[in-house]
């Protein structure tokens, strides 16, 4: 509701009538009544304690993360991503500087340091890049407009990663304070930085995580309204099935994997 208070539209959004809703559900129940007992209904089992389960999984992966990281690299490259390795977070600005130089990129927009983990801004500026850092906390309309503007013209978007799925080479990013959706979407090059603590093996494990992230009902804790799974650069094959990259989202996605954990 708070979000709606900031709305620029002068009118309240339309509300459905209670009658429409009741009628809608009545019709469904009537039809369902006709089939009772005719079909098997084996409801899906939900993991009882997803948070604990995924914690165990991640602890196990942490012990043999090299294997998982290798698998991630293989799959990420298979879907057209570019994989980089860095020993520590201190080496990352050089990696990013290199990516930027090769692409003649000068303007960088980055998640807030609180969301990213480290503050890479000064080191990137020292490498001749023009860096826009988005605000954390709960800024107003002015910062929103600014971020939109700088993201639309940036050459490179720098984000963290909440989870990296080895099986599919997928980066999972949650939106929230200091972590706009558009940083990984509008610039032609997306660079994502993460460490072994982000690794999971499979889509099945992602299921556990998604359960864990929502149980108990999310205390909003700075999390936003979107979770994005990114598996390679934006692509289309809509013209004569010719694979073309970067139709709407980034043409390039880079994963910078930092071997020494830098997140809490």
């Amino acid at each position: 509701m708070t979000a709606r208070a900031e709305s620029s539209s002068n009118d309240r959004p339309p509300r459905p009538s209670i009658a429409a809703r009741t009628e809608f559900f009545e019709r469904i129940r009537t039809e369902m009544g006709k089939t009772r007992g005719l079909f098997s209904a084996r409801p899906a089992a939900r993991p009882p304690r997803p948070a604990e389960a995924i914690e165990t999984v991640q602890r196990q992966i942490a012990e043999r993360w090299r294997e998982t990281a290798q698998r991630f690299q293989r799959e990420f490259e298979r879907v057209g991503g570019v994989f980089h390795r860095a020993a520590t977070i201190k080496d990352v600005p050089d990696v990013i500087g290199g990516i930027a130089r090769e692409r003649k990129a000068s303007r960088v927009v980055t998640w807030n340091p609180a969301a990213l983990g480290p503050d890479l801004g000064p080191d990137l500026v020292a490498r001749g890049l023009c860096v826009d850092v988005v605000a954390g906390g709960n800024p107003g309309d002015v910062e929103r407009a600014r971020v939109r503007g700088v993201s639309a013209v940036a050459d490179l978007g720098l984000t963290g990663v909440d989870v990296a799925i080895a099986e599919t080479g997928t980066l999972v990013l949650r939106s929230g304070a200091g972590r706009p959706r558009s940083t990984s979407l509008l610039p032609p090059t997306h660079v994502a930085v993460f460490d072994p603590t982000a690794l999971i093996e499979s889509i099945a494990q992602l299921g556990l995580l998604l359960e864990a992230w929502h149980v108990p009902a999310p205390a909003d804790g700075g999390w936003g309204g979107m979770i994005t799974l990114i598996t390679g650069p934006s692509r289309t094959a809509d013209i004569e099935l010719t694979l073309t990259r970067g139709v709407h989202g980034p043409k390039e996605v880079h994963a910078v994997f930092v071997e020494a954990p830098f997140r809490g």
Partner: peptide
């Protein structure tokens, strides 16, 4: 034939406090 499509987007209502983009209204 992809393992996952490039983007799987999970939308959970309108923009939340602190978010710098996302819609005011979700229907």
């Amino acid at each position: 034939g992809q393992r996952l499509s490039v983007y799987t987007t999970l939308v959970q209502g309108p923009r939340r406090p602190g978010e710098l983009d996302g819609p005011d209204e979700f229907h």
